[in-house]
């Protein structure tokens, strides 16, 4: 008796399918990706949950980042996620599994588009049958493979995916995309400047930003993923002249 429940998650409607799922993403923190000649850049806005949240474990552990928006999916692919966190974690797990299965079968890193296809096949499946809720997650895939070299893909909850030179998911993605249309010269700088313009707050800092780049190792010619740690993000913002000034945040003693 699936009809007793809300059937709107899977029926066709003027808003398109997976309407609720798409809605969830438009409120999520912005994630943007930029494709350059010699690498791919991902930048993401973290929604600050509150001062009491204990983030001490994410400072030094793992592959970098705080593990909220940007994840290493395979040694040659970084994923940026916007949407429901629990759904996203499940997709990250699936993607890592798919990547390692390919590595086991073919002794090579999974081609970026194939990884996007694997995830989209599953996402599509959840839009087709009653009683299932689609994944409320959009993804950016920044990756490298020998077939098409550096690539950037975007997928949405319906299971659509497409390749981009620069794109954005999450809240304010329209604003960001129009900024990105200016063209990419300095990818890292443009990514950071675009983030600073689309985010609510006036100043950027590591507590609100995640950042990652994928390049080729100059010696081994193998893809090298780097997800920045909070301290590295602050250093990078300092270098780009976008770091926050102390007087903005520090409480001034009463005069």
């Amino acid at each position: 008796m699936a009809r007793r429940y809300d059937s709107r998650t899977t029926i066709f409607s003027p808003e398109g399918q997976s309407f609720y799922a798409m809605e969830a993403i438009s409120h999520a923190g912005t994630v943007l990706g930029l494709l350059a000649k010699d690498g791919v850049v991902l930048a993401a806005e973290k929604k600050v949950t509150g001062k009491l949240l204990d983030l001490s474990a994410t400072k030094e552990g793992g592959y970098g980042g705080s593990g909220e928006k940007i994840f290493l999916l395979s040694s040659n692919v970084i994923g940026g996620l916007a949407g429901l966190t629990a759904d996203a974690n499940s997709l990250v797990n699936f993607a890592r599994n798919a990547a390692q299965q390919h590595l086991l079968s073919y002794d090579e890193d999974i081609p970026v588009e194939l990884l996007a296809q694997r995830l989209c096949d599953m996402k599509q499946g959840y839009t087709q049958f009653g009683g299932l809720r689609p994944f409320g997650v959009s993804l950016l895939y920044a990756g490298y493979d020998p077939h098409y070299e550096f690539q950037l893909y975007r997928s949405d909850p319906s299971g659509n995916y497409s390749g981009w030179k620069a794109t954005c998911i999450g809240a304010n993605n329209g604003t960001a995309q129009s900024l990105l249309k200016q063209g990419v010269k300095d990818a890292i700088g443009l990514a950071l400047r675009t983030m600073s313009k689309t985010m609510d707050s006036t100043t950027l800092g590591s507590e609100k930003l995640e950042f990652a780049v994928l390049t080729l190792d100059p010696v081994t010619k193998q893809p090298k993923a780097k997800i920045y740690r909070p301290s590295e993000i602050d250093a990078l913002l300092e270098k780009e002249g976008l770091a926050k000034k102390d007087e903005d945040t520090e409480m001034k003693p009463a005069a």
Binding site: S105, Y106, D107, E108, E113, L114, P146, H147
Partner: peptide
């Protein structure tokens, strides 16, 4: 399926 062929190293591994 993928529009490009499997590379020799990947084919041999498979």
């Amino acid at each position: 399926r993928n529009l490009y062929a499997l590379r020799p190293s990947a084919s041999a591994a498979w």
